[in-house]
């Protein structure tokens, strides 16, 4: 899932300090799972902003809500009858949801309330780590189910590099060496022969290098 973290309160205050009517819009999707931007976080942020305005002696209305998914216009449409009353919206959805909100309500100021970080897993509560960079051409079949693009700091396709030590990446002792993970997994699977085949330069056109991407599924389109 998409992983995000709440933006610092000071940054959000900096955006909204001149507003008098504000909507905090959470999202029930990915950001709820990583506890960065669901209804619970929307309520907490709204309370904190109310306190901020009260303490500053300013009259301001701060409402909160959460939509099923801000990446789908049917759910965003649920705000259509009341969004006009607000000076601005703070969206706690991921960068996709924030942009979609701004796209659908193109006259409305929409501020980000989270920093969107990566596609990752919940290792445990409050601990998330990256697994996929959405390069658009999956090679996991060749690499024992561990992605070198997402998990090697140098996205090497013929690793590990000479900085790998004790199973850790040269960038940080907190980062497992992606290629050691690949090696161990290939060993477990009895596929170590894959390790010695040089992998040719990757075609990055399906990654961000090809420009903003779009999927057109003719089989699904009516």
């Amino acid at each position: 899932m998409i992983k995000a973290i709440p933006k610092p309160m000071e940054e959000i205050i900096n955006y909204v300090q001149d507003c008098t009517k504000l909507l905090i819009a959470g999202c029930d999707g990915c950001v709820t799972v990583c506890e960065a931007g669901g209804l619970k976080e929307a309520k907490v942020l709204a309370s904190a902003l109310r306190l901020y305005f009260t303490q500053g002696g300013k009259q301001a209305q701060v409402d909160e809500t959460s939509l099923t998914r801000q990446c789908e216009k049917e759910y965003l449409a649920q705000l259509s009858d009341r969004i006009d009353q607000y000076d601005a919206v703070v969206s706690l959805a991921c960068g996709v949801g924030i942009q979609h909100m701004a796209e659908i309500y193109d006259k409305k100021v929409v501020y980000p309330g989270v920093d969107t970080c990566f596609l990752g897993v919940n290792e445990e509560r409050g601990l998330y780590s990256e697994r996929c960079q959405a390069c658009g051409r999956c090679i996991l079949a060749e690499t024992g189910g561990v992605c070198p693009i997402a998990r090697c700091s140098k996205r090497m396709l013929n690793g590990p590099c000479g900085g790998s030590e004790g199973g850790k990446c040269e960038v940080s002792k907190d980062i497992p060496c992606g290629w050691e993970l690949i090696y161990e997994r290939l060993k477990t699977l009895g596929q170590l022969d894959r390790f010695e085949n040089p992998v040719v330069p990757k075609d990055w056109t399906t990654s961000r290098d090809g420009g903003p991407r779009k999927i057109v599924r003719e089989d699904l389109r009516i």
Partner: peptide
């Protein structure tokens, strides 16, 4: 470097290839 010497030989074999 890690994970072991055998892999370092294998990696060099890959570079030679």
């Amino acid at each position: 470097a890690g994970p072991n010497v055998a892999i370092r030989v294998a990696r060099l074999a890959k570079k030679v290839a």
